[in-house]
Design a protein around this nucleic acid. Structure first.
Lengths: 361, 361
DNA sequence: CCTGCAGCTGACAACGTTGTCCAGGCTCTA
DNA sequence: TAGAGCCTGGACAACGTTGTCAGCTGCAGG
């Protein structure tokens, strides 16, 4: 009968069969090497190497014998040794902020697809927005001798990468620029997107517009704030401090910030939300608010069209960011590229209703 | 001035600085080795190794000289060579279906956190639901000599992994079981969850309940279908074929399937949606439907609580799946585990409104 | 019958690191 | 002061693969 662990509710079904017994043996648990294959096939070591790599100059008969030995022993080439000898790992590293964030999934996937097209594997890690962890990860990847690095930086000083870049590690920064270092950068037009979004609200009659954003030490957050200010200034609207929330990252604090700017002495009639997480929190606040408040969010969010009203957003193309960065990485590896560039991808305003609400006061 | 590429709208800002010139040199672009460091510090090779690895038996003065040489040369240990020598790579592989799917982000992140806690890196790849690609990826990871593999299988025959497992590669399957092979498996209780969800609809008075699911060759889809059938049978309700859609994967076909079962001769009054993607599509269909239709979806989705009505779901804990699988992986590597097990994690019914609507006919 | 050539094959070194082991110099004690 | 023991440092082999090069075979041509 099944046992059920009371605390966790897990059901545990023990298998009656036994795990294939593993010879403790030497490292890799007694994995056969080319030498073993050669011995079994009665050929030389190098001949096995030739067969494994599809090099010419092997008689069909010899090749067959080698293949049989490979089958029989379950041989698989050790890429570590290969890398050591050849100097290229055919793998690239991706350092991002948080794989669980829906914005980074498609980006990561796009990088992977490009890597795959170039026959490379992707090794990735999350920095959790911690500069130290970013550095630790990036350097660990360099120690593995990845051919290149795609980095979504958490920190703002990347001089630690200088020796690596000098040593030939291709490097591209995405989503946020590199700090104190000369490198390729692929960004969304955060400033322009935010400015357009806020201008959109202004065009619909709003003047008291709130901005809820991330910590300004994060480049994207700073740029979006700058876009907000620019749009307001262009329209000749003086911004009140109470309309801006910067650096409230936890949902609770974002919620509080939104509530405050909706209820203050000069309450906002519209909110510009600085990223997908903030947008979701603000939506929750507005859902419980008595009068309608316009909203434009940076980053598209799933189901935004099904809410009432639909959520108007400034969408950036995460997949395109990843694709562009990875493309550039491999062009660096080709030697096609000479000078680092800064590439900005445009954003797109998607109207769904929430950004077109008139001011309600 | 900036050039703007007309087609793509990209803004390209050429950097005036020049990329640090890279000596073409030998592989790794002339990376210094321990030998170089030793020469510069005027010590033996092994002494450098000792310093780098923090081994005892080095005078502070010698250590300082070595450290200085390391700094000066920008030396970084080559982990490929290290791995070759030591036999452990301190990295694990994750083969999943699609990183861009919001369900797998948290799972992947959870695996990464556990790996990190064990000092291991995560190498991952997407199978794109293609069994061949899954195999290709898994074997490529084995060639890199990852210490272990966490696999979300796309295929249903994993005998190709037998030599690897025998050779000592720890292996855990998540979300779906392994095929024709004896291995650890961590699953959600797909059958029970679906049965509970459908029973929930029945308890609210529904009898004509539709099921929109994925291809039954996918284990989770088959189990959820089985749960649906079980709940209906328990309630003594005969299921009509027109109420079930299996294997419609594209949004268009799912949409059509939903429309069909809502408009047929005996139209359903409630729908059970088999996964997050299907749920979203069904929500879109129901949003345009004239009479209210109850809905329960498998997998939680973001913003589900903000829709009107809120979406009732059977939630599984993706992070817990990943965490449990990774834990087990490392316990295999410890040698703590003997026999493969099948672990099922419970699901949770979250009531938000859509599943509590009464039948409208 | 010998030479030359082409096509296969294998011996060997090298990649950069770590584990083993020994040498040399020091201190401490008898 | 001599011997024992400890501490530090270095020489060397090995990990599994690939690149280089030379040897071997068989065959065509002189």
């Amino acid at each position: 009968m099944d046992k059920t662990d009371d605390r966790t509710g897990r059901r545990i079904v023990p298998d009656t069969t036994r795990r294939a017994d593993r010879l403790p043996g030497n490292r890799y648990g007694n994995r056969p090497t080319m030498k073993d294959v050669a011995a079994r096939a009665g050929v030389g070591l190098k001949t096995v190497s030739r067969v494994v790599n599809g090099e010419p100059g092997v008689t069909p008969d010899t090749e067959r014998r080698v293949q049989e030995a490979i089958e029989a022993l379950g041989f698989r080439r050790n890429d570590s040794a290969r890398v050591l000898r050849k100097g290229r790992t055919a793998s690239i590293g991706l350092v991002l902020e948080d794989l669980a964030d829906p914005f980074y999934g498609p980006l990561s996937r796009a990088v992977e697809e490009v890597a795959r097209a170039h026959g490379a594997l992707l090794i990735n890690g999350s920095s959790a927005e911690d500069p130290e962890r970013e550095q630790e990860l990036a350097l660990a990847l360099c120690a593995r001798r990845v051919d290149g690095l795609v980095i979504i930086p958490a920190g703002d000083d990347h001089r630690y990468l200088e020796p690596e870049i000098k040593a030939g590690v291709a490097t591209v920064f995405v989503d946020r620029p590199a700090g104190r270092i000369d490198a390729d950068v692929v960004l969304s037009d955060n400033f322009g997107g935010a400015r357009d979004g806020v201008a959109h609200l202004i065009a619909h009659g709003h003047r008291r517009i709130g901005f809820v954003g991330d910590m300004p030490r994060i480049h994207t957050a700073a740029e979006r704030l700058r876009g907000y200010r620019a749009a307001m200034e262009d329209a000749g609207i003086p911004v009140e401090d109470a309309w801006m929330s910067l650096g409230a990252t936890s949902p609770e604090r974002v919620r509080q910030a939104a509530v405050d700017m909706l209820g203050g002495p000069s309450p906002v009639t519209a909110i510009f939300a600085g990223n997908n997480r903030v947008t979701v929190t603000v939506i929750r606040v507005l859902a419980g608010h008595r009068r309608p408040v316009a909203l434009v969010g940076f980053d598209d969010i799933e189901l935004a069209d099904l809410l009432d009203p639909g959520v108007t957003v400034i969408a950036q193309d995460a997949a395109a960011l990843g694709r562009t960065a990875a493309d550039r990485l491999f062009r660096q590896l080709d030697g096609t590229l000479i000078a680092p560039e800064r590439i900005e991808l445009p954003t797109r305003l998607i109207m769904r209703g929430s950004g077109e609400l008139p001011p309600a006061d």
